[in-house]
Design a protein around this nucleic acid. Structure first.
Lengths: 215, 215
DNA sequence: ACTTTTAAGTCAGTCGCATGACTTATCTTA
DNA sequence: TAAGATAAGTCATGCGACTGACTTAAAAGT
């Protein structure tokens, strides 16, 4: 094992340990010290040495996963090209995420980690920059917009936000359930993705009502 | 001002300060000291003196709001009695929350606070026990179930979870937007509630698809 | 080929600081 | 004046940032 390999392995160990701890306890609640210890590093400087800051560490974790998800999603978007079905484009958003978690095998933490990062005021920006601004998601969003020409722009933006939020939090919840004894299989993730896609499609297609007068 | 009043006022000050700090930075990221200082208490024991622990403080904040929301929602549930419209029962879930925030006047923090508490692994239980188990919500959920007899039970539970989650996080996001300069008015909250109700109604009514085979 | 130099990674320990829990003192009002 | 509320200060603990020594792989010089 060369020196470079060892370093890379240490980095990976830290990333995995941090991902798990963040998912379990929240980003703010975990110290760099804890992460270093959990990663089997005797010192307490490992995180700042390898990543510089907690911020950069979070970014690195996000990137490690989103790169693979992005790859899958790009392929899926290309395959869906031309489809007039709203559901197909919603599936482009949901399925690559779920499939990635299925591919990782149990136990996974990235779902819960994502939800934590997305909610934490100090880190939410990271998530939107690194994950939600990906080319494939923007493309799917654009296609979706064309399939829903009657949706007022402000409502569309609202719902886009809802969809992103709901996707992450629902997947996190599903992951939590799977971690607590539910059978973890590719099928269970497929079912979760399918149910989520159904729900989000319904959300997109919901008729727009004028706010009713108060009584 | 009687002694009891002064004490009650101090309690309220602490509750408000804590609510704001928790909403801005997350529960784990805020110390009891910060809260005491922010509440204008010279000592650093104010929180533990008045509430015993951070846990109990969070609980108190939740209760302070949910009591009022519950009252509104109970009235609304009674008024909706007999309605066959799914949207009416969804509105029973959403509107009392939004209306409560509108009633509080700007700036509000409880929306973001709720999202924080709901996501934090150390406090999420509090939220479900204190807020999601309320009689009015259970009642509305039951009515909803009757209006959707064809929905498989597991899908119904899934969606119930999604709806609760999406409601809180969307309202938190709306509150954030309003705090950042958007005009804060009763109308803006009405519109937010209406849009959210539309979306959630669509979610409930979405057709259930069988998971497609993988390619 | 062999040695020297350089730089990267690891480790143990220190620093000032903020934390929650605790104790003591002062003040207020019933 | 007795009890409850607030203030002030102490304490051990854990934090992030920093330091210097040690190990080892790679690069440079001969």
């Amino acid at each position: 094992m060369t020196r470079t390999d060892r370093v890379a392995a240490t980095r990976e160990t830290i990333l995995s340990a941090a991902e798990r701890l963040f998912a379990e306890h929240g980003v703010a609640a975990v110290s760099n010290r804890q992460i270093s210890q959990e990663a089997g590093q005797g010192n307490n400087t490992a995180v700042s040495y390898h990543f510089g800051s907690k911020d950069a560490l979070v970014r690195a974790i996000v990137r490690r996963h989103t790169e693979q998800i992005e790859e899958t999603r790009l392929r899926m978007v290309l395959r869906a090209d031309g489809s007039a079905e709203v559901r197909d484009w919603v599936a482009c958003m949901v399925e690559p995420f779920a499939r990635h978690l299925a591919d990782l095998g149990a136990p996974t933490w990235f779902g819960r980690f994502s939800a934590q990062v997305m909610t934490d005021p100090a880190y939410r920006e990271i998530m939107s920059r690194e994950a939600l601004n990906s080319p494939s998601l923007l493309r799917a969003g654009e296609e979706l917009r064309r399939r829903l020409p009657d949706l007022p722009p402000d409502v569309r933006l609202e719902r886009q936000d809802m969809v992103g939020r709901l996707m992450v939090h629902t997947i996190a919840e599903r992951e939590r359930a799977l971690a607590e004894g539910a059978p973890v299989s590719r099928e269970s993730w497929d079912r979760a993705a399918s149910g989520l896609t159904d729900a989000l499609t319904g959300l997109w297609l919901a008729p727009v009502t004028a706010p009713s007068a108060r009584t």
